[in-house]
Amino acid sequence: MSLDLTDRRIYGFATEEHLRFADVDANGHINNGAFLQLLENARVSYMRAIVRSGLPRFRVVVGRLEIDFKRQMFFPGRATACARLLDVHERKCVIGHGLFDGEGNCTAVLKAIMVSLNEETHRSMTFEPAVRAALEKYAASKDGLGS
């Protein structure tokens, strides 16, 4: 399934973010690094919500980030950071993100490749079947929330 990450309607999960003066760069707009932090907060919060929904405990780590910056954001302001599962593989999953300014304009999209991690060896491992099945349900759903 191919989804348009700039479309706010594909995301059932979002965090409301406050843009800080400390995030402003020399050009007077929100720094690119701050975009990554805002999206990371959404990703971590989304994954925690999934785990708390009753899944067996599992760990993932970032293997790759691909971000496209679409437009600037300015201080002061607010942003909405969204996340949802897009795809699940044997040892990794793909999480899509959208970042939207206070007017609802998409300012960035990101794909995060998350690798399944064995907590003891710190090596990649396959997802347990129950975890993979649940993650696939989230990825296949309309809003990324399994509904």
Results as ranks from 00 to 15, higher is better:
Arg20Thr: 04
Leu99Ile: 03
Arg9Gln: 15
Gly77Val: 00
Glu66Leu: 12
Arg132Thr: 02
Arg64Ser: 10
Val60Ser: 06
Phe69Cys: 08
Ala133Trp: 06
Leu99Ala: 01
Lys142Phe: 09
Val131Glu: 00
Thr6Asp: 00
Phe127Asn: 02
Ala42Lys: 01
Tyr11Arg: 06
Ser45Cys: 08
Asn105Tyr: 10
Phe21Thr: 04
Phe58Met: 03
Val62Ile: 15
Ile10Cys: 07
Glu66Gly: 04
Glu16Ser: 14
Ile30His: 07
Gly28Ala: 05
Phe74Ala: 10
Gly102Pro: 03
His18Leu: 14
Glu16Asn: 14
Gly96Gln: 05
Arg78Trp: 09
Thr126Cys: 12
His18Ile: 13
Pro76Arg: 05
His18Asp: 13
Leu86Cys: 02
Gly96Phe: 02
Arg123Ala: 12
Gly33Pro: 03
His18Gln: 14
Ser2Trp: 12
Arg52Cys: 02
Lys137Glu: 09
Asn27Cys: 03
Lys137Ile: 09
Met47Thr: 02
Ala133Thr: 12
Val62Gln: 10
Ala130Arg: 12
Ala140Lys: 07
Leu110Glu: 00
Ala130Ser: 13
His89Asp: 13
Glu40Thr: 10
Lys142Leu: 13
Leu36Ala: 11
Met114Leu: 15
Ile95Glu: 01
Tyr11Trp: 09
Gly12Pro: 03
Met125Val: 14
Arg52Lys: 15
Ala22Asp: 12
Glu40Gly: 08
Gly54Tyr: 11
Ala14Asp: 07
Pro76Glu: 09
His97Ser: 05
Phe127Leu: 08
Asn105Arg: 15
Arg52Phe: 08
Lys111Asp: 04
His89Ile: 07
Val60Pro: 04
Glu17Tyr: 06
Ile113Trp: 03
Ile30Gly: 05
Phe13Asn: 05
Asp87Asn: 13
Tyr138Thr: 06
Asn31Glu: 00
Ser124Met: 10
Ile50His: 06
Glu136Thr: 02
Gly54Met: 09
Met47Gly: 00
Arg84Ser: 04
Ala112Asp: 07
Gln37Tyr: 07
Gln72Leu: 12
Gly146Phe: 01
Pro56Ala: 09
Asn31Arg: 06
Ala139Val: 06
Thr80Gln: 09
Arg132Trp: 08
Ser45Phe: 00
Ile67Asn: 02
Ala83His: 01
Ile30Trp: 01
Phe69Met: 06
Gly54Lys: 03
Val62Thr: 14
Lys111Arg: 15
Glu128Ala: 15
Ala108Met: 03
Ala49Asn: 11
Met125Leu: 11
Arg123Met: 12
Asn118Pro: 02
Cys93Trp: 05
Phe74Gln: 11
Asp87Phe: 02
Asp23Leu: 04
Asp23Gln: 04
Leu65Tyr: 00
Ile95Val: 15
Phe75Tyr: 15
Thr121Gln: 09
His18Trp: 11
His122Ala: 13
Thr121Asp: 08
Ser116Gly: 08
His18Phe: 10
Ser2Val: 14
Asp143Trp: 07
Phe127Lys: 01
Thr6Ser: 15
Leu55Thr: 11
His29Arg: 07
Glu40Ile: 06
Ile113Phe: 05
Leu65Gln: 11
Pro56His: 02
Thr107Gly: 01
Ala108His: 05
Arg48Thr: 11
Met73Leu: 12
Arg123Ile: 09
Phe21Met: 12
Ser124Lys: 05
Gly102Arg: 05
